[in-house]
């Protein structure tokens, strides 16, 4: 089974985010990046499937040069090779364009399964995987928590609200968006890390993807992004201040006498 896993790099969870002067993005200079959380799980899922059924796991990443780091991590964990679309010169928020680029890369491979994380921790659109499926003409299931491979098809368990699940069967090839927590993610071992350097990372340019400048022009989109800003607070909590001992005493006092929870 050949599995393509789409992975993206996002600023690390705890980053202190500062918005750029033009309000269009966050200041990148001081940021560190990591693999998007649910993408980690997508990779893990692919590796488990490969271990059980054989085949190949191919990482697909779009991003600037720094994403090599993420790719290497994925290769170290056991992916076989990687495709890298360097989009430094045509970065866009337009999901359709991004899906077009990813789809073009995927179409060059005959994959049985395409996996993505269910959403990214930066923009959080949560749409790329599903749009990609439609672009590729593949059936999909999202927020997947369990996969059972059968002959020519897969059975998956999808998460729904409040502890409910849907169990569906899809013909292969298919696309799944993977939810965090589907399995425990492995740690890259020293062996895997040392082996990663021998694995292929293929750089894909626009023309490699059979696309031209015009294909990545987002100016005609009907959706316009304007600005980023720190949210205004709606209701603020009553903030307790002082040194730890002090706030602890205040809190216990308030819980007792104001909130009367004891």
């Amino acid at each position: 089974m050949k599995i393509i896993v789409c992975m993206k790099q996002v600023p690390v969870q705890d980053s202190l985010l500062k918005i750029t002067d033009d309000s269009r993005w966050v200041q990148e200079a001081e940021l560190n990046y990591e693999i998007n959380e649910s993408d980690h799980y997508a990779l893990e899922t692919a590796l488990l499937l490969k271990e059980e059924h054989g085949g190949e796991v191919v990482i697909l990443t779009m991003g600037p040069r720094r994403v090599k780091e993420a790719i290497k991590q994925g290769l170290a964990k056991g992916a076989d090779r990687a495709l890298h679309i360097n989009n430094e010169s045509f970065t866009t928020l337009d999901i359709f364009i991004n899906a077009k680029l990813l789809a073009a890369a995927i179409q060059q491979e005959e994959a049985d399964l395409v996996l993505t994380g269910l959403q990214t921790d930066d923009y959080g659109f949560g749409q790329t995987g599903v749009i990609l499926a439609e672009k590729l003409g593949l059936p999909h299931a999202s927020i997947v928590m369990e996969i059972l491979k059968q002959d020519g098809s897969i059975k998956v368990k999808r998460e729904m609200e409040s502890g409910w699940f849907q169990s569906v069967e899809l013909p292969l090839p298919a696309l799944l968006t993977i939810q965090s927590g589907i399995s425990q993610i492995r740690y890259a071992t020293i062996k895997g890390i040392m082996m990663a350097k021998k694995k292929e990372i293929k750089e894909l340019s626009l023309s490699d993807l059979g696309l031209a400048e015009g294909d990545v022009d987002d100016s005609t989109s009907s959706l316009k992004f304007h600005k980023l800003y720190v949210p205004e607070k709606t209701k603020q909590a009553e903030l307790l201040e002082g040194d730890p001992k002090d706030v602890a005493a205040q809190l216990v006092h308030k819980l007792k006498n104001e909130a009367k929870v004891f």
């Binding site: 991590q73 020293i190 890390i193």
Partner: peptide
């Protein structure tokens, strides 16, 4: 580069 990945793994573990 390898070292930094190994340290990451170790920290996560």
């Amino acid at each position: 580069e390898n070292l930094s990945m190994i340290l990451d793994s170790l920290r996560q573990f």
